[in-house]
Design a protein around this nucleic acid. Structure first.
Length: 468
RNA sequence: GGCGCCAUGGCCAAGUGGUAAGGCAAAGGUCUGCAAAACCUUCACUCCCGAGUCCGAAUCUCGGUGGCGCCUCCA
């Protein structure tokens, strides 16, 4: 499998540190509100990476954190007049609901910063001892000029950074590009005791500490949004490599931003759409599917029109799948017929196409295309007179590929199927008596419930789609 | 100001040297009581513009134009 490594700016053959095992760290959310749909992109993309590596037989350890102490959380807590932990716990809960909905709940661990303070203090101590960090008035800063490789990931040069007008001037820092590892608490802010002051950690140090604790000094893949390349990931490298004296990450993966009307969607930009709001009109599956139709390193412009198109596309896949199940359950022949053997041999072609796509830097867009090609092939191959064995073979391939992409092939029916069957039987009777007005009335009634009927020579087939 | 990325049909989107995947939308047809689904057919002599390299370029080089991102919290 080839992976584009942001550090080397090339696609590289993926070779894990330990054969058969992969350690992945993905930067998680700061929990001060609901996530927006842009946040869903890395969650979905790197979940597919996780699933695909497992599909290929790797044993994956996947860690993603919660930043549960931060200025924004404190601000929100002050606005509501509650403890910071009330805010963070609330949005961790909401985040997990979204993660569940997106079918991305496979992470092995989700550490929280507030539960890792001890480890953070230890790493800061080490950095001071090794001469990479210094204390000033209760704050501790990382000295960027003392870490020679600083800037290699982002391609920034310290000189340029200093020349930039946007670097905050801070009298305590030796260099404008130095960043905070520990800062003293202001009155009323959450705080922990440390050798330097009662305070809390800076943002960047947490990921270095948690990655080390849960995955080790050197990990295979570290991933996140491309807006984290600088300064967050650059700083993580500096901290981890300075403290551990070892290479931090072998492959850096970054997803491009989700845009809206061509502009980056961001909480600071104020042009974001909350995932929960989108889910009122579309299912989680649709946003997940839409995200997969674009390569993860290309910017993706979000719109409702795209969601609608994605929903229709997804329905095409689901319809093909449900047709297969219908054919299987109504098949007149059990055993595979001789003439069907060719189609089964050809199935492998689609699996290969699917795998080659994902092997090429996780090209989910082409993997989805492979699924569409499979849909087409299935529609022309598995017919009324097909055997149960043939239909099942196709179903197995659908299941296999959909599982990697995390696409749900069937919607859960929320209505009692006895009721549906009764109405269908009633309509069939009406049709038999040529009372088409009554038949159509029942069909409309079912349609209002989200049931679409399909009259076939083998009987009536129905599919369910949740009404929004 | 510095660094980097992108520009493919009505919409979305793969493709990074060998002659334009796929999805949505649209048009016609088959099937059907009508539908739905499915199938068949049609839908970019062309990939922002100009020049160059090459037997050959959407793909490489140079120059434009337009758009975006990072340099500050951000997925």
């Amino acid at each position: 499998m080839k992976i584009y490594n942001t550090f080397t700016k090339t696609k590289e053959e993926f070779v894990p540190i330990e054969p058969g095992k992969v350690k992945i760290y993905v930067c998680g959310p700061t929990v001060y509100s609901f996530i927006h749909i842009g946040n869903a992109r890395p969650i979905v993309v790197f979940d597919v990476l996780h699933r695909y590596l497992e599909y290929k037989g790797y044993e994956v350890t996947y860690a993603t954190n919660f930043t549960d102490v931060d200025d924004k959380i404190i601000k929100r807590a002050n606005e509501e007049g509650v403890e910071a932990s009330v805010i963070s716990e609330r949005y961790i809960g909401e985040y997990l609901k979204d993660v569940e909905g997106l079918k991305t709940a496979k992470a092995d661990c989700r550490p929280k910063v507030t539960e890792e303070i001890g480890g953070i203090i230890e790493m800061i101590k080490t950095l001071i001892e090794k001469g990479y960090a210094y204390e000033k008035n209760g704050s501790v800063y990382f000295s960027t000029t003392d870490f020679k490789p600083y800037g290699l990931l982002s391609g920034k040069k310290l000189k340029e950074l200093e020349a930039g007008a946007r670097v905050e001037i801070d009298e305590e820092k030796r260099n404008p590009s130095d960043f905070v590892l520990w800062k003293p608490a202001k009155p009323g802010e959450p705080k922990w005791a440390s050798p330097w002051s009662e305070g809390r950690p800076g943002w960047h140090i947490e990921c270095s500490v948690m990655s080390k604790k849960y995955l080790g000094d050197t990990i295979d893949i570290h991933a996140g949004g491309d807006d984290l390349i600088f300064p967050h990931h650059e700083n993580e490298i500096a901290q981890s490599e300075a403290a551990n004296g070892k290479k931090f990450v072998n492959y850096w993966m970054h997803n491009a931003m989700l845009t809206i009307s061509g502009k980056k969607m961001g909480k600071s930009e104020g042009n974001f759409l909350i995932l929960r709001d989108i889910i009122k009109d579309f299912s989680y599956d649709v946003i997940r599917f839409l995200i997969l139709t674009v390569h993860y390193r290309s910017p993706m412009n979000f719109s409702r029109d795209l969601m609608e198109a994605a929903e229709t596309s997804l329905t095409r896949i689901r319809t093909a799948y449900s047709n297969l199940k219908f054919r299987r359950d109504n098949a007149k022949t059990e055993e595979l017929k001789e003439e069907e053997q060719n189609s089964l041999n050809e199935l492998q072609k689609y699996i290969t196409m699917f795998e080659e796509s994902l092997d090429d830097d996780l090209n989910t867009a082409n993997a989805v295309t492979a699924v569409f090609e499979l849909v087409k092939f299935s529609n022309v191959s598995v017919l009324e007179n097909s055997s149960k064995a043939q239909a099942q073979a196709f179903i197995d391939v659908f299941d296999k590929l959909a599982d990697v992409l995390g696409i749900k092939l069937e919607e859960t029916v929320e209505i009692g199927s006895e009721k549906i069957e009764a109405l269908i039987a009633e309509r069939q009777l009406a049709r038999k008596n040529k009372d088409f007005a009554a038949a159509d009335r029942i069909r409309n009634e079912l349609s209002d419930m989200g049931i679409t009927l399909n009259d076939t020579p083998e009987g009536v087939k129905w599919t369910y789609k949740e009404k929004k």
